[in-house]
């Protein structure tokens, strides 16, 4: 559990005038689920593309299982499975044929290919659809088959780039269970995500990445406990309170206030009783009705906001959308 399996040092990737990955360094231990957490454009995918041999870094070095990525990438690829952000298997091939083709590419012995492919189809609940063309699969099924394809050669490390992006709640939950099961079987997993709850749920450690730089690396529990010095209160009004946010800020100068929704504010820090009292006063003065007030435990999202200073909304933005 303590063996370092991935070692990255000062890795840098520059695209014209944009530094996508900026001198990042980290280590991943065997059997660990390590998450790269950050908003879109933080450099998560660029890092995964470098570590899986799709693109080359401008500076820095990395080794996987002791092999250098700049000189021994083909050898490394035999031991890693990669699930890209896009489910990019072949539309014209069936689920089974896609897995067999991947087994062929990875040099899985002929006698084992079909058995392994069928076992994975069973594991991912796709066996009944094994002869259906990939293009007829639902988004969740495509994602599952893409993960199955990454496991066909029994890799030691699995790279997952935004594994649940674009999936409905049930499909995402089912996929997270699969990732958890792979972790329990001892697989080392490196995943990128911009879903805070996903990182919290799946990862042993996370690195928070903003504008190409790692600004914190620790377990989700430690990142959260670092934030436990202050209280977090959610207050829901029956009216839209966003026009009054400056008034709230003036009345609660010791606190940080974030609008979670039109009628919902999150208030950080301060003495809870004093906050409750001041909230009631402002509500009364402005004719607002308070629907609920809850003191909540700090989440990874709170830790993320504290560490990065970014709005949580930035993490809710899907790639390509504003």
């Amino acid at each position: 559990m303590n063996d370092v399996i991935i070692k990255v040092s000062q890795l840098t990737k520059v695209f014209k005038d944009i530094t996508a990955v900026d001198h990042i360094s980290f280590e991943i231990k065997q059997g660990e689920v390590f998450g790269f957490l950050g908003p879109n454009g933080a450099g998560k995918t660029s890092t995964i593309r470098i570590l899986t041999g799709i693109s080359k870094p401008n500076q820095g070095s990395a080794s996987i299982l002791g092999f250098d990525i700049s000189s021994e990438m083909v050898r490394i690829k035999k031991y890693i499975g990669v699930v890209p952000e896009i489910s990019n298997l072949y539309d014209e091939l069936s689920g089974l044929d896609n897995l067999i083709f991947m087994a062929q590419l990875y040099g899985v012995p002929k006698a084992e290919r079909k058995n392994r492919a069928e076992a994975l189809l069973e594991m991912f609940n796709l066996y009944e659809r094994k002869h259906s063309l990939f293009r007829t699969y639902s988004r969740g099924m495509k994602r599952s088959l893409t993960i199955a394809a990454a496991l066909i050669h029994n890799p030691k490390i699995l790279f997952l780039d935004e594994p649940t992006v674009g999936l409905d709640v049930m499909a995402a939950r089912s996929l997270r269970n699969l990732i958890s099961n792979l972790h329990k079987q001892g697989m080392t997993i490196f995943l990128t995500t911009h879903y805070l709850e996903e990182a919290d749920l799946l990862c042993d450690r996370v690195a928070i990445l903003v504008k190409g730089k790692i600004i914190a690396t620790d377990s989700p529990a430690r990142l959260k406990s670092a934030n436990q010095d202050q209280s977090v209160i959610d207050v829901v009004f029956s009216n839209n309170v966003t026009p009054l946010i400056n008034q709230f800020a003036d009345a609660l100068p010791e606190n940080k206030i974030t609008a979670i929704d039109n009628n919902k504010l999150r208030i950080y820090g301060g003495v809870p009783n004093k906050v409750y009292h001041n909230l009631c006063v402002i509500a009364h003065d402005n004719g607002l009705e308070i629907e609920s007030i809850n003191s909540i435990k700090p989440s990874l999202e709170d830790a993320f906001i504290k560490i990065t200073g970014l709005s949580p909304n930035i993490m809710r933005t899907e790639k390509g959308k504003k």
Binding site: T52, I54, R75, K77, P84
Partner: peptide, 14 residues
């Protein structure tokens, strides 16, 4: 366009 060519490059091949 579909990313399947990139998929090939993830295999142990140059």
């Amino acid at each position: 366009r579909l990313g399947s060519l990139e998929r090939l490059l993830l295999a142990p091949v140059n």
